[in-house]
């Protein structure tokens, strides 16, 4: 009887995964760049399911136990019970405002590596595309941040901030405030995802404006302004001097994905 249960689990996982892949709902959970791995796991699961079907009569090779089966079913239950949608912005309350999108590599703690000569070389190679991008961006009259280029551009901005101070920027995001913010401060933020929602962090631009009370937490705004650096207890953070703003409906996919 446990055999039927195993078959259900294996094909159930395969079904859930294919549903998520086909409906693109998987974007709400993991970075689209890693989805080829999920396609491979569907194939793995189907293979295992077929093998289990063929070996229906065979004895269990390892005991799994009731709690084991219950546990493995948990993801299917959660998938069925809860609608798959992007995490609400309330998720951001448990996250930390990281200012700079995850790992600009300069800040990485790697004492063993920093002295290596070859590492220096790759560091420069690694910087090249960013330099190119910076030159491109400087020519634009207004830098428009979209979901696709958000992380790339804010990386470049924070790597060479001195070249961009005073530059016009347009961005869309939700209003986010952290404990310890002054009354006239808020962040126009997005959730940045490296691999999956679990590693999401809040990224965005710090604004301070006397009209701050017009901006309620979790409301979405499009903001035009000029780029500048703001001081914060954790050092320099990207800031905007607001020129104009517009309330916009919340985006369907509130995440921005790390490109690699």
């Amino acid at each position: 009887m446990a055999v039927l249960f195993r078959i259900t689990i294996l094909f159930g996982f395969a079904l859930v995964l294919s549903y998520l892949i086909i409906s693109h709902d998987l974007d709400y959970f993991i970075n689209p760049r890693l989805q080829y791995l999920s396609v491979i796991s569907v194939l793995f699961l189907l293979t295992l399911g077929l093998v289990q079907l063929k070996n229906v009569g065979k004895r269990a090779a390892h005991p799994v136990g009731v709690w084991g089966y219950l546990m493995v079913c948990l993801p299917i239950c959660f998938f069925l019970l809860f609608p798959s949608k992007p995490a609400e912005t309330s998720l951001a309350d448990n996250k930390m405002y990281t200012y700079v999108p995850n790992q600009v590599k300069k800040t990485n703690p790697s004492p063993n590596q920093s002295t290596d000569a070859p590492q220096e070389l790759t560091e420069e190679e690694w910087e090249l595309p960013y330099k190119k991008k910076a030159a491109e961006l400087k020519k634009l009259p207004v830098i428009i941040l979209t979901s696709e280029n958000y992380i790339d551009i804010s990386n470049v901005l924070m790597m060479y901030p001195e070249q961009f101070i005073g530059k016009k920027i347009r961005t869309i995001g939700f209003v986010y405030r952290e404990e310890g913010f002054k009354a006239d401060q808020f962040v126009i933020a997005r959730l940045a995802i490296t691999c999956c929602v679990a590693d999401a962090g809040v990224v965005g631009f710090l604004l301070d404006t006397p009209e701050s009370n017009l901006f309620k937490n979790d409301q979405w705004f499009q903001i035009d302004g000029t780029f500048g650096l703001k001081k914060n207890e954790s050092g320099d953070v990207p800031g905007l001097k607001m020129k104009s703003y517009k309330k916009v409906p919340a985006l369907k996919d509130s995440y921005v994905y790390q490109q690699f």
Binding site: F13, L17, L20, L26, Y28, F29, I30, L34, S38, S41, P75, F78, F79, F82, S84, K85, P86, A87, L91, C195, C196, V197, A198
Partner: peptide, 11 residues
């Protein structure tokens, strides 16, 4: 969401 995302990522 977090649970499923960790699960889907690790699977």
């Amino acid at each position: 969401t977090i649970f499923l995302s960790i699960f889907l990522e690790g699977l």
